[in-house]
Amino acid sequence: MGKDTQLNIWEVFIQSKSGLPYIHAGSIHASDEKMAMQNARDTYTRRGEGTSIWVVPSSCITASNPGDSEMLFDPSNDKIYRHPTFYVMPEGATNI
């Protein structure tokens, strides 16, 4: 793969409504924070997808190593008691 000459890569997170979590939308190229914000806005919120944006330089993100995934994630497979499925739902409640 050739060298990426199109500025630095930033990850974009969009919040669709106030109070909801920011969800990863994708990445963009930009040379600085201001440009990253504008490019994120132009690339990912053109159809009313968001009310707030976070941009983060991709280099600032620490990702888990795919080689560690057995160690990190498999141990939770047989711990069904960690799911709150043993409660009886009070009558009439839709969420607890």
Binding site: L7, H29, A30, R46
Partner: peptide, 11 residues
């Protein structure tokens, strides 16, 4: 010059 700017100008 690059795709993000393509979108910005056409927006």
């Amino acid at each position: 010059p690059f795709i993000e700017e393509d979108l910005a100008l056409t927006n």
